[in-house]
Amino acid sequence: MSTVPPFDEIVDGADPERVRLRTTHDLLLSAGPPPELPPSLEAAPAQQSQVIAILPRRRYTAIAAVALAACALFGVGYAIGGRDVPNEPVRTIAMTGDSGATASIALLAADAAGNWPMSLEVSGLPPLPKGKTYSLWLTRGGKLAESCGTFAVAAGTTKVPLNAPYRLKRFDGWVIVRTGTKVPLLSTA
């Protein structure tokens, strides 16, 4: 595996656009990869979020009271009919690695659009320098196939929500790698 793509293999020596393509090549290398958006930022924010900031303080009190009442109602409803809990995992997937790190994925039911929300709980991976992340991938035939997002870890255990907007039957495993590499640190196999 090479770390810098060989420009001379990509662009022929006689290519009339060689100079400007070289400039673009260099800009790509210096820019680095754009960051992955977390699930919380995948959709544009609602404009209503701007209104909240200018509400008078007393309105916050009213909102808090309504929220408290809603929580209480939810609690009653949960106690009465808690058998159909929508956030119950439909599948739990365990992952292990050579370094003693472990992870588990609690996969929730897919929504109508085909998103499989999940909660990834990971322990034992070393925290990375600022800006560096780990990635969760679905694999097929032992190769990285589709990314399910990136995340950072703290010392101890980290729990993070991720999403797999794919048909999971098309894949045969899960791995965690350092973003930008293909070396599995944790895997299901």
């Binding site: 595996m1 090479s2 793509p5 060989p6 990509i10 290398l29 680095g32 930008g180 590499t181």
Partner: peptide
């Protein structure tokens, strides 16, 4: 482009 420049894969 992603695989060549950001994942370090050869052509």
């Amino acid at each position: 482009i992603d695989l060549a420049y950001f994942s370090g894969l050869s052509q």
